[in-house]
Amino acid sequence: MAAAVLLLLLCCCPPVALALQHFTGEAPELSVQEGGLGLSLRLSVDDEDELRLLLRNGASLELVINAEILRQRTFLPNESLDERNFSFLLKYDSLTRQYRMSDPLTGKILQDPNMRSLLTKTWKQLELPLTNMDIFAQDEDYLVLLKLTLQYAEIPPWLDRSLVFWSREVVEPETYKLEFNLDDAAFSR
Protein backbone atom coordinates (compact mmCIF):
# COMPACT_ATOMS: atom_id res chain seq x y z
CA MET A 1 0.00 0.00 0.00
CA ALA A 2 2.80 2.34 0.89
CA ALA A 3 4.45 1.55 -2.38
CA ALA A 4 1.30 2.42 -4.22
CA VAL A 5 1.12 5.75 -2.43
CA LEU A 6 4.77 6.36 -3.27
CA LEU A 7 4.08 5.59 -6.89
CA LEU A 8 1.15 7.94 -6.84
CA LEU A 9 3.40 10.67 -5.51
CA LEU A 10 5.95 9.87 -8.15
CA CYS A 11 3.29 10.20 -10.80
CA CYS A 12 2.30 13.56 -9.46
CA CYS A 13 5.89 14.70 -9.12
CA PRO A 14 7.81 13.63 -12.22
CA PRO A 15 11.54 13.06 -11.76
CA VAL A 16 13.27 16.37 -12.39
CA ALA A 17 17.01 16.90 -12.30
CA LEU A 18 18.31 17.46 -8.85
CA ALA A 19 21.02 19.59 -10.39
CA LEU A 20 24.26 19.84 -8.55
CA GLN A 21 25.28 23.06 -10.13
CA HIS A 22 24.38 25.71 -12.64
CA PHE A 23 26.03 27.02 -15.71
CA THR A 24 27.80 30.32 -15.23
CA GLY A 25 29.57 32.66 -17.56
CA GLU A 26 28.64 35.29 -20.02
CA ALA A 27 25.49 35.23 -22.04
CA PRO A 28 25.90 33.66 -25.49
CA GLU A 29 26.30 35.99 -28.39
CA LEU A 30 25.63 35.59 -32.05
CA SER A 31 28.09 36.83 -34.59
CA VAL A 32 29.15 36.38 -38.15
CA GLN A 33 32.16 34.13 -38.36
CA GLU A 34 33.81 33.28 -41.60
CA GLY A 35 30.70 34.07 -43.60
CA GLY A 36 28.41 32.08 -41.40
CA LEU A 37 26.42 32.54 -38.28
CA GLY A 38 28.46 31.75 -35.21
CA LEU A 39 27.85 31.53 -31.53
CA SER A 40 30.25 32.77 -28.91
CA LEU A 41 29.94 31.08 -25.61
CA ARG A 42 31.88 31.47 -22.38
CA LEU A 43 30.81 28.55 -20.35
CA SER A 44 31.73 27.38 -16.91
CA VAL A 45 30.09 25.75 -13.89
CA ASP A 46 29.72 27.34 -10.50
CA ASP A 47 31.50 24.57 -8.61
CA GLU A 48 34.39 23.09 -10.50
CA ASP A 49 35.61 21.13 -7.48
CA GLU A 50 32.39 19.19 -7.43
CA LEU A 51 32.75 18.58 -11.13
CA ARG A 52 36.29 17.41 -10.60
CA LEU A 53 35.20 15.05 -7.86
CA LEU A 54 32.57 13.59 -10.11
CA LEU A 55 35.13 12.99 -12.84
CA ARG A 56 37.60 11.46 -10.45
CA ASN A 57 34.88 9.15 -9.19
CA GLY A 58 34.61 7.67 -12.62
CA ALA A 59 31.89 9.79 -14.16
CA SER A 60 32.03 10.72 -17.80
CA LEU A 61 30.28 13.96 -18.54
CA GLU A 62 28.90 15.21 -21.78
CA LEU A 63 28.20 18.79 -22.60
CA VAL A 64 25.55 18.93 -25.28
CA ILE A 65 24.90 22.20 -27.01
CA ASN A 66 21.83 22.18 -29.17
CA ALA A 67 21.18 25.17 -31.35
CA GLU A 68 18.08 25.43 -33.49
CA ILE A 69 17.72 28.29 -35.93
CA LEU A 70 14.15 29.36 -36.50
CA ARG A 71 12.46 31.91 -38.65
CA GLN A 72 9.93 33.72 -36.60
CA ARG A 73 6.39 33.89 -37.88
CA THR A 74 3.49 35.86 -36.53
CA PHE A 75 0.57 33.51 -36.81
CA LEU A 76 2.19 30.26 -37.79
CA PRO A 77 4.66 28.29 -35.73
CA ASN A 78 8.25 29.31 -36.23
CA GLU A 79 9.99 27.64 -39.14
CA SER A 80 13.03 25.58 -38.34
CA LEU A 81 15.85 26.47 -40.69
CA ASP A 82 18.74 24.53 -39.26
CA GLU A 83 19.80 22.67 -36.19
CA ARG A 84 23.23 21.91 -34.81
CA ASN A 85 24.43 19.72 -31.99
CA PHE A 86 27.80 19.90 -30.36
CA SER A 87 28.86 17.27 -27.89
CA PHE A 88 31.89 17.59 -25.62
CA LEU A 89 32.82 14.45 -23.72
CA LEU A 90 34.80 15.09 -20.56
CA LYS A 91 36.30 12.41 -18.38
CA TYR A 92 39.19 11.63 -16.15
CA ASP A 93 41.78 9.06 -17.16
CA SER A 94 42.86 7.50 -13.92
CA LEU A 95 45.71 5.74 -15.69
CA THR A 96 47.37 8.86 -17.05
CA ARG A 97 45.84 11.08 -14.34
CA GLN A 98 44.67 13.43 -17.00
CA TYR A 99 41.37 15.00 -17.89
CA ARG A 100 40.35 14.25 -21.41
CA MET A 101 37.88 16.07 -23.52
CA SER A 102 36.77 15.28 -27.03
CA ASP A 103 36.47 18.41 -29.12
CA PRO A 104 33.73 18.14 -31.74
CA LEU A 105 35.08 21.16 -33.58
CA THR A 106 38.54 19.70 -34.18
CA GLY A 107 37.78 16.06 -33.71
CA LYS A 108 40.72 15.74 -31.36
CA ILE A 109 40.92 14.58 -27.78
CA LEU A 110 42.39 17.16 -25.52
CA GLN A 111 44.21 16.04 -22.42
CA ASP A 112 45.29 17.98 -19.44
CA PRO A 113 46.13 17.02 -15.91
CA ASN A 114 44.49 20.26 -14.85
CA MET A 115 40.75 20.33 -15.35
CA ARG A 116 40.48 24.08 -15.09
CA SER A 117 43.15 24.49 -17.72
CA LEU A 118 41.32 22.10 -19.98
CA LEU A 119 38.00 23.87 -19.48
CA THR A 120 39.63 27.24 -20.05
CA LYS A 121 40.95 26.05 -23.34
CA THR A 122 37.61 24.62 -24.42
CA TRP A 123 34.29 25.62 -22.83
CA LYS A 124 35.37 29.07 -21.78
CA GLN A 125 36.13 30.19 -25.31
CA LEU A 126 33.66 28.37 -27.48
CA GLU A 127 33.09 29.66 -30.94
CA LEU A 128 30.52 27.51 -32.57
CA PRO A 129 29.63 27.74 -36.22
CA LEU A 130 25.92 27.41 -36.66
CA THR A 131 24.94 27.89 -40.28
CA ASN A 132 25.52 29.80 -43.46
CA MET A 133 24.21 33.29 -43.76
CA ASP A 134 22.64 32.44 -47.08
CA ILE A 135 19.57 31.04 -45.48
CA PHE A 136 18.72 34.37 -43.91
CA ALA A 137 16.78 37.09 -45.68
CA GLN A 138 16.21 40.75 -45.07
CA ASP A 139 13.18 41.94 -43.19
CA GLU A 140 12.83 38.67 -41.40
CA ASP A 141 13.22 37.96 -37.74
CA TYR A 142 15.11 34.91 -36.63
CA LEU A 143 15.53 33.07 -33.45
CA VAL A 144 18.22 30.79 -32.14
CA LEU A 145 17.06 28.41 -29.45
CA LEU A 146 20.07 27.31 -27.50
CA LYS A 147 19.92 24.52 -25.01
CA LEU A 148 22.88 23.57 -22.85
CA THR A 149 22.96 20.27 -21.06
CA LEU A 150 25.69 18.72 -19.00
CA GLN A 151 24.87 15.12 -18.19
CA TYR A 152 26.40 11.81 -17.36
CA ALA A 153 27.62 9.81 -20.29
CA GLU A 154 29.07 6.41 -20.98
CA ILE A 155 27.03 4.87 -18.18
CA PRO A 156 27.32 1.10 -18.31
CA PRO A 157 24.12 -0.22 -19.92
CA TRP A 158 23.20 -2.42 -16.98
CA LEU A 159 23.47 0.54 -14.63
CA ASP A 160 21.68 2.80 -17.02
CA ARG A 161 18.76 0.40 -17.09
CA SER A 162 18.80 -0.05 -13.33
CA LEU A 163 18.84 3.60 -12.30
CA VAL A 164 15.40 4.38 -13.55
CA PHE A 165 14.71 7.32 -11.28
CA TRP A 166 18.23 8.76 -11.33
CA SER A 167 18.65 12.00 -13.16
CA ARG A 168 21.53 12.00 -15.62
CA GLU A 169 21.78 15.74 -15.58
CA VAL A 170 24.71 17.15 -13.62
CA VAL A 171 23.89 20.77 -14.28
CA GLU A 172 20.47 22.17 -14.64
CA PRO A 173 19.83 22.57 -18.35
CA GLU A 174 19.99 26.13 -19.59
CA THR A 175 17.97 27.49 -22.46
CA TYR A 176 18.56 30.70 -24.31
CA LYS A 177 16.54 32.48 -26.91
CA LEU A 178 18.56 34.68 -29.18
CA GLU A 179 16.68 36.85 -31.66
CA PHE A 180 18.27 38.60 -34.60
CA ASN A 181 17.70 39.86 -38.10
CA LEU A 182 19.95 40.99 -40.85
CA ASP A 183 19.17 44.63 -40.14
CA ASP A 184 21.29 44.42 -37.01
CA ALA A 185 24.67 45.90 -37.53
CA ALA A 186 26.41 42.79 -36.32
CA PHE A 187 24.78 40.72 -39.02
CA SER A 188 24.87 43.08 -41.93
CA ARG A 189 26.74 41.55 -44.84
Binding site: M1, A2, A3, A4, L6, L7, L54, R56, N57, G58, A59, S60, K91, Y92, S94, I155, P156, L159, S162, L163, V164, F165, W166
Partner: peptide
Protein backbone atom coordinates in the same frame (compact mmCIF):
# COMPACT_ATOMS: atom_id res chain seq x y z
CA UNK B 1 36.75 -1.05 -14.48
CA UNK B 2 38.11 1.09 -11.72
CA UNK B 3 36.27 4.10 -13.05
CA UNK B 4 33.06 2.10 -13.33
CA UNK B 5 33.54 0.82 -9.82
CA UNK B 6 33.99 4.35 -8.58
CA UNK B 7 30.94 5.51 -10.46
CA UNK B 8 28.98 2.66 -9.04
CA UNK B 9 30.15 3.56 -5.57
CA UNK B 10 29.04 7.10 -6.18
CA UNK B 11 25.63 5.94 -7.35
CA UNK B 12 25.15 3.09 -4.90
CA UNK B 13 22.56 5.01 -2.94
CA UNK B 14 20.55 5.61 -6.09
CA UNK B 15 21.07 2.03 -7.10
CA UNK B 16 19.81 0.81 -3.76
CA UNK B 17 16.84 3.12 -3.93
CA UNK B 18 16.03 1.87 -7.39
CA UNK B 19 16.28 -1.73 -6.34
CA UNK B 20 14.20 -1.10 -3.24
CA UNK B 21 11.65 0.73 -5.26
CA UNK B 22 11.50 -1.98 -7.87
CA UNK B 23 11.17 -4.56 -5.15
CA UNK B 24 8.49 -2.53 -3.42
CA UNK B 25 6.57 -2.02 -6.62
CA UNK B 26 6.76 -5.69 -7.43
CA UNK B 27 5.70 -6.61 -3.92
CA UNK B 28 2.87 -4.10 -4.05
Amino acid sequence: GTQEYKLLRTLRRELKATLYLTLTVLTA
